[in-house]
Design a protein around this nucleic acid. Sequence first.
DNA 1: TTTTAAATTTAGATAAGCCTAAATTTATTA
DNA 2: TAATAAATTTAGGCTTATCTAAATTTAAAA
Lengths: 230, 230
Amino acid sequence: MLPGKRIIGISMMNLAEENYLKTIFNLSGGGKKNVSTSAISDFMENKPSSVTDMLKKLSDKSLINYKRYNGAYLTPAGKEEALKVIRKHRLWELFLVKYLAFSWHEVHEIAEQMEHVKSGLLIDRLDKFLGYPATDPHGDPIPGIDGKYRLVNNKTLEELKEGESCVLTGVKNSSSEFLKYLNEISISLNTRIRVLKKYAFDGSVLVKIDEKHRQSVSKEVSKDLLITVI
Amino acid sequence: MLPGKRIIGISMMNLAEENYLKTIFNLSGGGKKNVSTSAISDFMENKPSSVTDMLKKLSDKSLINYKRYNGAYLTPAGKEEALKVIRKHRLWELFLVKYLAFSWHEVHEIAEQMEHVKSGLLIDRLDKFLGYPATDPHGDPIPGIDGKYRLVNNKTLEELKEGESCVLTGVKNSSSEFLKYLNEISISLNTRIRVLKKYAFDGSVLVKIDEKHRQSVSKEVSKDLLITVI
DNA sequence: TTTTAAATTTAGATAAGCCTAAATTTATTA
DNA sequence: TAATAAATTTAGGCTTATCTAAATTTAAAA
């Protein structure tokens, strides 16, 4: 009944740090580019001055390279940390969809909390339990123990020519609103999509979904749909 | 790829509060008795002055009844909160043992973190996924959505007479050390135990485990083994 | 019952992560 | 290039949950 170890609560001392690293990773497209203070501030919905404080802290810890007035990018150590958090986030998202009957637009907020649970063993066991999956419910690649992606999506629906067919393998935009829109037009992961017609005047595409429904999608939407040509 | 909602990190604003409520619940044996400042301080391994601060805060929120120099006990609202946290803790512990191959002595620390993830839907789905279990891996009862236990263990091995048999249904002490000791002497949940002899001079008990091994257990240990007579 | 010891509370300080307002640097435009 | 605008940083504060040290209250012992 009474647990012996007095492990009360999460250390959580670097919850904020983890969120900054993850944000920098995402905004820099995988740790490559420089990310500005205001980009981080906009994304995290906090003040630029708060961002500056944290950038200094992360820089002191050698997790980012930071030059005043010039943004930051991840060091190898910072990238490793970020990938660990992303790995946890995506594995938990998949667990929620696969075993707890959540829909792909509902899992982000919960995974955002679960990703901070500290236990390497836990996440490796979860990975095994899920069958070492390559992608999360949004088609985003899941980093392995080694931090390497098992699969990469790069082609979008926008790049397809008339007559070509593909399968949806991911989305670039995982917002709840966007995912719900896709639900409404019957598009989900592994859905087959055939390009019937492309309209030059607005870049929109007329597609056939699973050989059943016709649907027009805007250029903006087509750019956010990651696909594999078949 | 980029999640739309800017839900970065756990609110966690009442992580500390949750831990105090849980501690008060446990130390008061389910919210009944008064708990002293020093008892909380000892258990949480922090200073009495810190406890006093928090007791005032919880009292202001009507989660506990607190009288200066006189300890505290949970209000109905506080008890409800505590039970929610305990429910989450125990369900996650069971998940870890049942699906991720953890042993009963390894799950406390991880569940200590998972219990703070906020989502009523999540925990209810987990409950369903686990088959609405009555007890956790230590035999502790799991509160339902309504906060009511599905089962209560109250008899201990110490109360058994010579010749009687029982099944282990819980442990009063969930410390990693104690659980590892039980592993060593081949006692786990649902293990059958028969009392061969009781020694008056030290209160120790000679038992037969699963009709296979003989083992002597001290009075202290026998008091921490919750059982059902068969 | 008085004295001493133990428990508890108060007062004031600290660190993390955020904030506002002002100052500084960089970028843009005239 | 100089003036203006935008981005960024600095300086100083706030809140939460902790701490130490001192003061107070309760409990125990003489």
